[in-house]
């Protein structure tokens, strides 16, 4: 069990570093997928099956595929990183180094955090998640439908093509536009 944890932890850290370091955006996205998968492995080690599945479906499945689509549609698969000015580089290095020193200082002092609650292995099971969603957390669960409804309205409203120019010219969307409509849900 413990070795599995170390394995997943090593994969997460390495792939996360690759996401930032890779020159090619497609490589970045692939490493991010690997990173997400290894994090899902952590969830399974903690007996949080529901979270692990949702994580894989939503992040790895939907969001990352969307990322890949965007990168391909915008033709970003060459390394087109804009070069940064010297000033931004200095500022970024300074800020990053300061943050690192703060973290190291905090770690040296040691922050002791007592667990507020005993670990309960049953919390993450699909059954218990479902039960609390429909009993204690019924209102948040229901009310989030308003949120999703408004997000959907927004996607339709802002993503729809204008009606006015279409009356003059017959509707013939260009290939790239036709592809944008395919948003994986």
């Amino acid at each position: 069990m413990q070795y599995l944890f170390y394995l997943f932890a090593a994969i997460s850290v390495l792939s996360a570093l690759l996401v930032v370091g890779a020159r090619n955006p497609v490589n970045s996205v692939i490493s991010l997928i690997v990173c997400f998968l290894s994090i899902a492995g952590h969830y399974i080690l903690l007996n949080a099956q529901f979270l692990a599945m949702v994580h894989i479906i939503v992040y790895t499945g939907a969001i990352m595929v969307l990322f890949l689509f965007v990168i391909m549609l915008l033709n970003l698969n060459k390394s087109t990183e804009p070069s940064k000015t010297l000033l931004t580089r200095i500022a970024a290095v300074t800020a990053g180094a300061l943050f690192l020193f703060t973290l190291l200082g905090a770690l040296r002092q040691g922050v002791h955090i007592a667990a507020a609650k005993e670990f309960d292995g049953n919390t993450g099971l699909v059954k218990s998640v479902g039960q609390s969603l429909f009993s204690d957390f019924l209102l948040p669960f229901e009310v989030s439908s308003v949120l999703f409804l408004s997000a959907m309205i927004g996607a339709v409203m802002l993503g729809r093509k204008d009606r006015s120019p279409r009356e003059d010219a017959p509707a013939r969307p260009e290939p790239s536009e036709r592809r944008t409509k395919k948003i994986p849900a």
Partner: peptide
């Protein structure tokens, strides 16, 4: 509910 309230308030605003 605080988080949901803030999100339900904001997402329509963005649109």
């Amino acid at each position: 509910m605080l988080f949901l309230g803030i999100e339900i308030l904001s997402i329509p605003l963005y649109i």
